[in-house]
Amino acid sequence: MLTLLISLSVSLLAALGLYFVTYNYIWSLMLMVVLILALNFFIGRHFLKKLTTVFQEIEKDLKNNRFEKAINRLKNAYSFSKWQFFVKEQINSQIGIILYMQKKFNEAKDYLEKGFAKNWMGMAMLATLYFKEKNYEKVKSTMEKAIKNAPKEGFLYSLYAYFLTEMGEKDKAIEILVKGSKKAPLDEKLESNLEALKNGKKMKMRNYGTLWLQLNIEKMPQGFKPYQMVLARQKIRRR
């Protein structure tokens, strides 16, 4: 992207300039490395601040039910994608999440499929859409990717286990919960679900509250508004 291109170009010119003055390639290489790291950091931080401001405005829009305005802000932020890697994917995930919460599932799917693999909420929503379509192989591959990128999110293990039990793969579901209990040992809800399956009982996904309800697998209570909570749990990433 442009940040990396500018960092490389400026650093290379500076290194060449130093070499023609000193004829010392070691100092030239050291200068080049230092400048690449410094320029990439400062330029990246500049655009990260701009993106953070955009996301703060979006959160205000969602609190006030201005969903279309929030989506338009996100689409305008696509312009930052030429400066930083994965910005477009992160924006796609956020748009997909907002559309999903509005129950515009077909539109949401298009964005979530082009989203950021490290946005675990977006991945959970995408897996849910595949589950509703009975595309179980896609459910598994999406959940495996989500867990790989967010290994300490206990909810993901429980969600994956829920899907597997619904597919008739109880033993595999128990394996996933055991794995999750090691990665997220403080998640009491996960431990409870593991014990339930071991004892032949049903998992209690409602214990996860908003995290579970916002997936629309069960009917949402009247007046339920999870938008603020969704964005609050997301983090903008430079890489």
Rank of each mutant, 00 (worst) to 15 (best):
R206A: 14
F55C: 07
K60W: 06
D187W: 04
L16K: 09
Y78F: 15
K183H: 06
M101N: 14
L18N: 07
Y160L: 03
L213K: 14
K75E: 13
S141V: 11
R238N: 10
K225P: 06
K198F: 08
K189S: 01
L48G: 02
V139P: 04
S141M: 05
F85L: 08
K219L: 13
E144L: 07
M32Y: 02
E107L: 14
I36H: 04
F85N: 05
T52D: 14
K60V: 13
V34W: 10
K69G: 14
V54E: 13
D187S: 03
V10L: 02
K134H: 12
K235N: 02
T53F: 11
M229N: 06
Y130V: 01
I91G: 12
K172Y: 08
K103G: 08
G223M: 09
L31P: 05
Q228T: 15
A70R: 05
L164T: 07
N65S: 13
F55P: 01
E144C: 00
Y78W: 03
D171P: 00
N149S: 12
V34P: 00
Y100C: 07
I217F: 14
K88H: 15
P221S: 01
L4C: 03
K49A: 06
F80K: 10
K49S: 11
E133F: 08
A161C: 02
L5Q: 06
M203C: 01
G96K: 11
I98A: 11
L74K: 11
S93W: 07
L4Q: 05
Q234F: 04
M30K: 10
R206M: 02
F80V: 11
K134M: 09
V87R: 07
M101C: 04
A173C: 13
Y19W: 08
W120N: 02
R73M: 13
I97Y: 04
L129K: 07
D171K: 12
Y78P: 00
K219R: 14
K235G: 03
G154D: 05
Q94T: 14
Y130E: 06
G223W: 09
K172N: 04
Q234D: 06
L12F: 09
Q222D: 05
E188T: 08
S141D: 03
A161P: 05
V21I: 10
D171Q: 12
I95G: 07
Q234P: 00
N24F: 08
L213T: 15
Q84I: 15
K49G: 08
E59K: 15
L4E: 09
I6D: 06
K49M: 08
L35Q: 00
K114D: 12
K182N: 10
S158V: 03
S141K: 06
L2N: 01
L231E: 06
A161W: 07
K152P: 00
M229H: 12
M203F: 01
K140A: 07
E195P: 00
E68V: 13
A196Q: 05
R239V: 12
V54N: 12
Y78D: 14
D171M: 12
F224K: 14
Y78Q: 13
